[in-house]
Deep mutational scan, measured.
Amino acid sequence: MIINNLKLIREKKKISQSELAALLEVSRQTINGIEKNKYNPSLQLALKIAYYLNTPLEDIFQ
């Protein structure tokens, strides 16, 4: 099972779900679904998340 630290990292960087969704060009519901482990992001989306949060991919999804 993948450990998902997206919410923790996003909140630590003081970025809202809506702000991150806008940067990634996805819906806020997509971010919410990823954070609640209801949706697994594509590799492309996971890499974009890591880029915009300036955090290694391995720290977000373990």
Rank of each mutant, 00 (worst) to 15 (best):
M1Q: 10
M1N: 12
M1I: 14
M1S: 11
M1D: 09
M1A: 09
I2P: 09
I2G: 11
I2Q: 10
I2K: 12
I2V: 13
I2F: 11
I2D: 06
I2N: 09
I3G: 13
I3C: 13
I3F: 12
I3K: 14
I3A: 12
N4H: 05
N4K: 04
N4T: 05
N4F: 06
N4S: 05
N4Y: 05
N4P: 04
N4I: 05
N5M: 06
N5W: 08
N5L: 05
N5V: 05
N5T: 06
N5H: 09
N5A: 06
N5S: 07
L6T: 02
L6P: 00
L6E: 00
L6Y: 00
K7Y: 09
K7Q: 10
K7I: 05
K7L: 06
K7F: 06
K7G: 06
K7A: 12
K7V: 05
K7M: 07
K7D: 02
K7H: 06
L8T: 14
L8Q: 14
L8F: 13
L8G: 10
L8Y: 12
I9W: 08
I9K: 02
I9D: 01
I9V: 10
I9L: 08
I9Q: 04
I9A: 07
I9Y: 11
I9H: 06
R10F: 05
R10I: 04
R10D: 01
R10Y: 04
R10E: 02
R10G: 01
R10P: 01
R10A: 02
R10Q: 02
E11C: 08
E11F: 06
E11D: 08
E11T: 12
E11W: 06
E11K: 09
E11P: 02
K12R: 13
K12L: 12
K12A: 14
K12E: 13
K13M: 13
K13C: 11
K13T: 06
K13N: 13
K13V: 05
K13I: 06
K13L: 14
K13G: 04
K13H: 09
K13F: 12
K14Y: 07
K14P: 02
K14W: 05
K14G: 15
K14M: 10
K14Q: 12
I15L: 12
I15Y: 07
I15G: 02
I15M: 15
I15E: 00
S16F: 03
S16W: 03
S16T: 15
S16M: 05
S16L: 05
S16D: 04
Q17N: 03
Q17K: 07
Q17G: 03
Q17Y: 03
Q17I: 11
Q17C: 05
Q17R: 09
Q17H: 04
Q17W: 03
S18A: 14
S18Y: 12
S18W: 13
S18V: 10
S18L: 10
S18H: 10
E19T: 11
E19P: 02
E19F: 08
E19Q: 15
L20E: 00
L20P: 00
L20M: 06
L20D: 00
L20Q: 02
A21L: 04
A21E: 02
A21F: 03
A21Y: 03
A22F: 08
A22R: 15
A22C: 12
A22V: 10
A22T: 13
A22H: 11
A22K: 13
L23R: 08
L23F: 14
L23M: 14
L23E: 07
L24M: 07
L24K: 00
L24P: 00
L24T: 12
L24W: 02
L24Q: 00
E25T: 08
E25K: 14
E25W: 07
E25M: 13
E25F: 09
E25R: 14
V26N: 01
V26E: 04
V26T: 06
V26I: 12
V26R: 01
V26P: 01
S27W: 03
S27Q: 06
S27D: 13
S27Y: 03
S27I: 03
R28L: 15
R28K: 15
R28N: 08
R28A: 14
R28G: 08
R28C: 13
R28I: 15
R28Q: 15
R28T: 15
Q29D: 15
Q29P: 06
Q29T: 11
Q29H: 14
Q29V: 10
Q29C: 12
Q29R: 14
Q29A: 15
Q29K: 13
T30W: 09
T30I: 14
T30Q: 07
T30K: 06
T30A: 07
T30S: 06
T30Y: 15
I31P: 00
I31G: 00
I31D: 00
I31M: 04
I31H: 01
I31Q: 00
N32D: 15
N32I: 15
G33C: 15
G33L: 15
G33K: 15
G33N: 15
G33A: 15
G33Q: 15
I34V: 05
I34N: 01
I34C: 02
I34Y: 04
I34L: 08
I34K: 01
I34H: 02
I34G: 02
E35K: 02
E35L: 04
E35C: 04
E35V: 02
E35N: 00
K36M: 14
K36S: 15
K36F: 06
K36I: 09
K36C: 14
K36N: 15
K36R: 12
K36E: 15
N37S: 11
N37M: 13
N37T: 08
N37K: 09
N37G: 15
N37R: 11
N37Q: 13
N37C: 14
K38V: 12
K38Y: 13
K38W: 14
K38T: 13
K38M: 14
K38S: 11
K38Q: 12
K38C: 14
Y39Q: 09
Y39G: 04
Y39I: 15
Y39C: 12
Y39R: 09
Y39L: 14
N40S: 14
N40W: 10
N40V: 14
N40R: 15
P41V: 08
P41S: 03
P41K: 01
P41D: 03
P41T: 05
P41E: 03
P41N: 00
S42Q: 06
S42M: 05
S42T: 11
S42R: 06
S42P: 14
S42E: 06
S42C: 07
L43M: 13
L43E: 09
L43S: 08
Q44I: 09
Q44C: 14
Q44M: 08
Q44S: 12
Q44H: 11
Q44T: 12
Q44L: 08
L45F: 07
L45N: 02
L45E: 03
L45D: 03
A46S: 08
A46T: 06
A46R: 14
A46N: 01
A46Y: 05
L47K: 14
L47A: 10
L47T: 11
L47W: 08
L47Q: 13
L47P: 00
L47G: 06
L47E: 13
K48G: 06
K48D: 04
K48I: 03
I49C: 02
I49V: 04
I49N: 00
I49K: 00
I49T: 01
I49A: 02
I49Y: 02
A50Q: 04
A50N: 01
A50I: 02
A50M: 04
A50C: 07
A50K: 02
Y51A: 10
Y51E: 12
Y51Q: 11
Y51K: 10
Y52H: 09
Y52M: 10
Y52G: 03
Y52V: 15
Y52R: 04
Y52P: 00
Y52K: 05
Y52W: 10
Y52I: 15
Y52S: 05
L53R: 00
L53E: 00
L53D: 00
L53T: 03
N54S: 10
N54Y: 05
N54I: 04
N54L: 05
N54A: 13
N54C: 10
N54H: 09
T55I: 07
T55M: 07
T55S: 06
T55V: 14
T55P: 03
P56H: 07
P56C: 06
P56D: 07
P56N: 08
P56M: 04
P56K: 08
P56F: 05
P56G: 05
P56T: 07
L57W: 09
L57C: 08
L57Q: 03
L57R: 04
E58D: 10
E58W: 09
E58S: 11
E58G: 12
E58H: 12
E58L: 10
D59L: 11
D59K: 10
D59R: 07
D59C: 14
D59T: 09
D59P: 02
D59E: 13
I60M: 04
I60H: 02
I60C: 03
I60Q: 02
I60T: 02
I60N: 00
I60V: 07
I60F: 05
F61T: 03
F61L: 05
F61N: 02
F61A: 03
F61K: 02
F61E: 01
F61D: 02
Q62H: 10
Q62P: 15
Q62Y: 12
Q62A: 11
Q62I: 11
Q62T: 11
